[in-house]
Write a protein that binds this DNA or RNA. Structure first.
Lengths: 176, 176
DNA sequence: ATACAGACATGATAGAAATCATATGGATGA
DNA sequence: TCATCCATATGATTTCTATCATGTCTGTAT
C-alpha cells in the first residue's frame, strides 16, 4: 500500500508565516473562521474554556500539524488556540485551502488518510481510557504499541491516563 | 457554512448488499483489504483480540456508518468486524472507492468533513475520560453537550466512562 | 389493568489509584 | 566536577469509585 499521507502539507507551501509569542492566541472561541493554520515551529494548545473556569486542553499541536482541522467546516471557532511557546504558523485563507483540495485529489486523499488513521488511533485510546484498572490499560496499550524504550514510560502513563507512580508500581509488579 | 457531510454516502449507491448473520464476521484481523463496507442495517462491532484473550471493542457501526475507514490505506485489517445482530452491509472494491473520491471532489470533501468532526469530538471525549472525578467529567460533558433529556442520562454515564450509580449520586448531590 | 423492562435512585462496602513523600540513577550543561 | 533536571522507583495515607444490593418510577405492550 502506497502512502501519500503527507502530500497535503504542500497546500501550505506558499503560505505566509505568522509569528506567535508564547501566551498569545492564534484565534479565540467564537471568532469567525477565515484562515487555516499549519504549525511550523513551537507548540500551540487548543483549549476550551469551561463554565467552571478551568480550561480543558484538547490538543497540543507542534511542527507540521494543522490547527483545528474541523474549523474548515465551521463558521466560528469552538476553542482557543494559545501558544505554549514562541511559535510560527503558516496561514492560508480557507477558500484557498478548499480550492486546493478540490483541484488536487492526491492532497484530498492524503488528508482523508491522515484523518482516518487519527480516528482509528483515537478510538483505541478511548477504549483504553474506559478500562478501570492500570493493569488492563497497560496491557491494551502494549498490545497496540509494543514495549516503549526506556525513558518513554512516563509518556505511556500520560497517554493511558494514570499517574506515573501507579504505572511504575504496575511495572514493578510484573517484574517480580 | 454549507455542510456536505453526507455526500460521500453516494459512493455506495450502486454497491451490492451482503447479508451478515449475527455472530458472523465481515472480515477478520490480518485478512487482506479488498472491499470498503457501509453498514445498511444492523450493528457491526469492530473488535481487536488482545494477547490476554479479552477482545477490546473499538467501535459499533450501525446504519449509514462506514466500517474501518482507515482500512482504505492499509494492506490488512487490524481488527475483526463481527455482527452484533443480523445485518446488511454494502460492499465496494477499494479501487472503485478510491477512484470515486478522486473523481468527485465534493465526495472527498464530505469525507474530510465527517472525519475532521469525528477527530474533534473524539479529542473532547479523550480529555473528558482523562479527568479523575465523576464531577469533573460530568461538568465537561455538560459544557460540550448541554443537559440531556430524561432517559438519556444513562448514556451519558456510558460516554464519560463512569458507572450509572456514580452518575446518579453526582446528580443527586447537585440537586441538594 | 397488569406485567415487564429499563431508567432513576441511594446505601454500604471493598478495592484501586491518586496524592504526598522520599529516594536513586542517568544525562546534561555550567 | 558539580549542580540540576527528569525518569524511575516505592512506601503510607487518603480519596474516590466500582460493585452489590435494593427499591421506585415510568412508559409500553399485552
Amino acid at each position: 500500500m502506497i502512502s501519500i499521507m503527507s502530500v497535503w502539507l504542500n497546500i501550505f507551501d506558499t503560505a505566509p508565516i505568522r509569528k506567535v509569542a508564547k501566551g498569545a492566541a492564534v484565534f479565540r472561541q467564537e471568532h469567525p473562521v477565515q484562515f487555516m493554520y499549519l504549525v511550523r515551529s513551537g507548540a500551540i494548545a487548543l483549549e476550551r474554556p469551561m463554565k467552571d473556569g478551568v480550561p480543558l486542553t484538547l490538543h497540543i499541536a507542534t511542527a507540521n500539524m494543522a490547527l483545528a482541522e474541523a474549523s474548515l467546516f465551521a463558521d466560528n471557532y469552538h476553542c482557543d488556540a494559545v501558544a505554549r511557546s514562541d511559535a510560527k504558523v503558516a496561514s492560508l485563507p480557507r477558500a484557498k485551502f478548499l480550492a486546493f483540495i478540490g483541484d488536487h485529489p492526491d492532497a484530498a486523499l492524503s488528508l482523508i488518510e491522515i484523518h482516518a488513521k487519527k480516528v482509528q488511533a483515537q478510538r483505541a485510546r478511548i477504549e483504553i481510557l474506559r478500562l478501570r484498572r492500570v493493569a488492563d490499560r497497560l496491557n491494551a496499550w502494549l498490545d497496540f504499541h509494543g514495549e516503549p524504550v526506556k525513558g518513554e514510560w512516563i509518556n505511556v502513563a500520560e497517554q493511558i491516563g494514570v499517574s506515573a507512580p501507579a504505572l511504575y508500581r504496575e511495572l514493578a509488579k510484573r517484574r517480580s
